[in-house]
Nucleic acid binder design. Sequence first.
RNA 1: GGCGGUGUAGCUCAGUUGGCUAGAGCAAACGGUUCAUACCCGUUAGGUCGGUGGUUCAAGUCCACUCGCCGCUACCA
Length: 656
Amino acid sequence: MNKPKYYITTAIAYTSRKPHIGNTYEVVLTDAIARFKRKIGCDVFFLTGTDEHGQKIQLSAEAAGITPKAYVDVVAGEVRAIWDLMNASYDKFIRTTDEAHIKVVQKIFKKLYDQGDIYKGEYSGQYCVACEAFFTETQLAGGKCPDCGRDVTPTKEEAYFFQMSNYQDRLMKHIEAHPEFIRPESRKNEMVNNFLKPGLQDLCVSRTSFTWGVPVAFDPGHVVYVWIDALTNYISAIGYDPDEPSARYKKYWPADVHIIGKDILRFHTIYWPIILMALGEPLPEQVFGHPWLLFGAEKMSKSTGNVMYADDLAEQFGVDAVRYYVLSEMPFAADGTITYQTIIARYNSELANTLGNLVNRTVAMVCKYFDGVIPAQGELQDVDLDLIQTAGQTVKTVVEKMDELRVADALEAIFSLARRSNKYIDETAPWVLAKDEAQRGRLGTVLYNLLECIRIIGACLEAFMPETAAKIARQTGGASTDWDGVQRFGALQAGTRVGEPAPLFARLDEEKKLAEIAAALDAKYGGEAKAEKPDANRAEQPKAEEEQQTLVSIDDFAKLDLRVANVLSAERVAGSDKLYKLSLRVGGEVRQVVSGIAKHYAPEALVGKNVVMIANLKPVRLRGIESQGMILAAELGGSLSLVTTDEEIADGAKVR
RNA sequence: GGCGGUGUAGCUCAGUUGGCUAGAGCAAACGGUUCAUACCCGUUAGGUCGGUGGUUCAAGUCCACUCGCCGCUACCA
C-alpha cells in the first residue's frame, strides 16, 4: 500500500522550433525510466514541459508577425504532439507561460531579493541575441559569438544578480557528501574543477533588453532571466509556494532524478542547487547529464541540414522501433549515433529476427501442435532449468541496470534472454518431439517454458516498447504481466488460449526502405530539405565530405587582407606568460597586436622582423589590451615559427 | 594551457579490488536445421588489448612517459 514515491523530470524543451530526434531522445529515455519505476511498484510523478520565454522567441515571433504567446502556443503544441506520439507517459506537461508558474517565479524572485541573495547591479558585455548570452571580450571567437558564430553587440544594462559565492562551500560539501549527485562521474569533475574550485561568479538573473518573460514584480522594467524562470519549473509544477507548498509538493519533492542533456549540466548542478539552498529546500537526489544522439558523425542541427524528426521516423519504422533504437543505441556516457542505415540494421537483426521471430515461431507452434491451447509444464530437464535460471537472472539484471539508469544495458539483457530462448528451441527441437506421440508431454513443457520466457520478455519490455509489449501479451494469451508474476516463472495459466500469431516487426529491405524514406521526405519537405534525405555517402564517406567542406573559393580568400608588417617593438603583457604586445608598422600605419608567441621568441629577436598579419581582423581585447589583427606563424607539435618574407620588401605590401 | 574522459577483433562495445587459452552483439565465411519473418542454431576472429619503459610470480587491469581522439574550461589570435 505504501509505494515509494519517484519524481522524475526532463529538461523543459525550448519552444523556438520543433524538437528533433536528439531532443526527443531525452523524453523517451525519461519515459522508459518512469514506466519502469511504475511497473515495479513506485508512485511515479513524471514531469516534462516547455520553456517558452526569452529574446530569441520574441524575435522569432516578431519575424513571423505574431505575438510571442501565439508563437509558443504553436511550438509547444508541436512538442506535446511529438511527446504524445512517442507515448511519453508524463503526469504533467508544464509550460513556463502557465499563470501558476509565473506567480511562483515572481514570488521566488522577491523572496530571494528580500533576503539579500539577489541585488541590483549593472551588466555589460558583448551580447549574442541568438544565444541570449553575454560574453566577455576574451570569450569571443574572432569577434563573434563563440557558440553560434553570429555577430555580438556591446550591451550594458541594469540587472539583478544572484550572489552565488555565498553558497559555494555548502554546494561543494554536498557534492562531496553525495557522490551520486552528478552523473556520470566525469561530469562531476568538470563542474567541480572548472567552476567550484576557481570560485563562482555572481549570476545575472534578470534582463531589460527584452520583454518576453516573467516580469520582476517589484521592478517591472525587468524580466526574470532563464535560470530562475526555467529551473523552477521542477518545483512550481508540483505546487511549490514559498508561503504554503502544496501536499503534492511535500510528497514528491525532492526530485529523485533530473534527466537533462549534458550541455546544461552546469545550470542543474550549480545554479539550481544554490537556488534551492537559498529557498531552504532540499536538493534533488541526482542529476543525470545524458549524452547526445549524433547524426552520423555530426551534431544534429537544423543549420547543417542533418535533422531527423521523431514523427518522420515513427512513420517509417513505427513508434516502438524508434524508441528501441534511441534507447538501445545510447551508451551510458558516450554519444550515440543515428542514421537510416543503422536503424534498418538494428531493426532487422534485433526486432524482426531475434525478438519478433521468437514470438512468432513459438506462438505458431502452440497453434500447430496444441490448437492454440497453452500446454501444461511437465517434468523439467537440465536445459529447462538453465533457461529458467537465465530468465530469473534477466529480471534481476534489468532492475539493477535501470536503477543505475543504464537503460541500454537493461535492454541488452532482455534481448539476451530472447537469444537464449531461440537457442533453447534449437536445443529441444519441438518439431522432432511433435512427431512422437510419446513425447507429447515433453513438447508441452518446452512450449510452456518458451511462452513463459516470452511473457517475461514482454513484461520487461513494457517500459521501453509499450505497444509491442501489449502485442506480445495478446499473442501469448493475454497473460498477466504484473511484476510479481514476472518474478515468478510459471505464473502463466495452462489451458488458456494464445492469440493469433502475427509478425511483430516486418523485415525491411534496406535498399527499398531507403528509397521509400527519400521519397517520403522529398514529398514532405521538398527541395528545401535535400540534405535531410538519407544519403549513404554521407555516413560512409565522411572524409570526402570533410574535404569538400574545407575547400574555399578564391573569393573567400580575397576577404582576408594579409599584409607585410614590420615589428617596431615587443613587450610582455603583464600577468601572462605567453602574450606579447607588439607594435607593427604596416605601410603608413602603426598597429597594436597581441600575440601568444612569448614562449617561442625573445622580444629583441622580434624587433625589425617582417611578419605577415591579417589586417582586417575584427579587433578584440586580450588581457585588457586591444589587438588589431593577428600575425601568422606555423605550428607543429609545440614548436612555432613566424611567417616572414623571403627578401626585403616594404611593410604594407599585400600578401596573396 | 588547465582539468577530465577515452583509445580492446572489420564495426559497436563488455572487461570487478591485477591471475584461467582476452569476451558479447553486428557484419563475413562455412556447416546444421525447418517450428518460424530467407529465420534460427553451431563453428570460424591467428585481435602487438594506442606506443614505450617500469612494478609484480603474474598487467587491457597498477606506475611513469608518450601519441591520437572527445568533453568542459581558459590570459587560446
